[in-house]
Computed example of a mutant assay.
Amino acid sequence: MHIRDRIRELRRVRAGDLRPNPRNWRTHPKTQQDALRGVLAEIGYADALLARELEDGSLELIDGHLRAETTPDALVPVLVLDVSAEEAAKLLAVLDPLASLAGRNEDVLRDLLLDVETAHPGLQTLLDELAGGSGGAEDTPEADGKADGAPEPPLPDLFQIVVQCRDEDQQRELFERLTGEGFSCRLVNL
């Protein structure tokens, strides 16, 4: 199969100069806006916006509307695509839903979250949701290690318990023990 490279160039463009796509159907709740602000504050731009060049030379967004709205005065990385209006519409329709189809490997995610810390409350909310197993596409039996594909039992009432450990080794030992017994845990260094 021949796959075309549709990226024409990478440009740094003032975000406020990008034209929002009038067909953008995505909305951005406050929780998403807060989490994005946290990522931008703690890391910065680590992904390019997608746009296509119109006949008048302006750039119309395909992906990255919230990032552009959040930082209108910033110079942002934009991948300028060589796509028609119809192809741009197709990308606009499927990029986010395509990403949301991914399953979750809870063990790998749990290990990843052990190494992720933030001081930003909006980003912490997102991390807490990830740790709790909410959001995203349905897990596949292969992704979460279940061979029989049986549905997860409903979660009981949730409680938060803070445990103070004498050192990091004790903390990790307790974490492994509790997660091995099926508890959802998150390590926090105070």
Rank of each mutant, 00 (worst) to 15 (best):
residue 36 L to E: 07
residue 188 V to Q: 08
residue 58 S to D: 05
residue 126 L to M: 12
residue 1 M to R: 07
residue 126 L to Y: 13
residue 27 T to V: 05
residue 104 R to G: 12
residue 80 V to D: 05
residue 16 G to K: 00
residue 175 F to H: 15
residue 60 E to V: 08
residue 23 R to Q: 15
residue 162 V to P: 11
residue 107 D to G: 11
residue 95 L to N: 14
residue 61 L to Q: 09
residue 72 P to C: 04
residue 18 L to G: 10
residue 187 L to A: 11
residue 38 G to T: 04
residue 98 L to P: 10
residue 43 I to P: 01
residue 89 A to C: 02
residue 121 P to C: 05
residue 105 N to A: 14
residue 178 L to E: 13
residue 174 L to M: 14
residue 114 L to S: 13
residue 6 R to M: 07
residue 145 G to N: 07
residue 144 D to K: 05
residue 75 L to A: 12
residue 80 V to I: 06
residue 102 A to G: 09
residue 182 G to E: 08
residue 66 L to E: 05
residue 170 Q to F: 06
residue 32 Q to T: 07
residue 99 A to N: 01
residue 172 R to C: 09
residue 161 I to V: 14
residue 180 G to I: 02
residue 134 S to F: 12
residue 76 V to P: 01
residue 57 G to H: 07
residue 127 L to S: 07
residue 68 A to Q: 02
residue 125 T to C: 02
residue 164 Q to D: 15
residue 17 D to A: 07
residue 42 E to M: 06
residue 15 A to E: 00
residue 7 I to G: 00
residue 155 L to M: 04
residue 26 R to T: 04
residue 4 R to T: 03
residue 110 R to G: 09
residue 19 R to F: 01
residue 107 D to Q: 14
residue 103 G to K: 05
residue 25 W to C: 12
residue 82 D to L: 02
residue 63 D to N: 06
residue 179 T to Q: 13
residue 80 V to Y: 07
residue 43 I to D: 02
residue 125 T to L: 04
residue 142 E to G: 07
residue 77 P to Q: 04
residue 133 G to P: 12
residue 11 R to C: 04
residue 160 Q to E: 15
residue 114 L to V: 10
residue 44 G to R: 06
residue 159 F to A: 15
residue 102 A to W: 00
residue 164 Q to C: 10
residue 37 R to Q: 08
residue 83 V to A: 10
residue 184 S to Y: 06
residue 130 L to N: 04
residue 120 H to V: 03
residue 178 L to W: 15
residue 140 T to H: 10
residue 136 G to F: 04
residue 35 A to G: 09
residue 96 D to Y: 00
residue 110 R to K: 08
residue 125 T to P: 03
residue 88 A to F: 03
residue 118 T to D: 10
residue 24 N to Y: 08
residue 150 A to M: 13
residue 164 Q to A: 14
residue 36 L to Q: 07
residue 71 T to E: 13
residue 126 L to D: 08
residue 32 Q to S: 11
residue 26 R to H: 09
residue 151 P to H: 06
residue 68 A to E: 02
residue 158 L to D: 13
residue 169 D to Q: 15
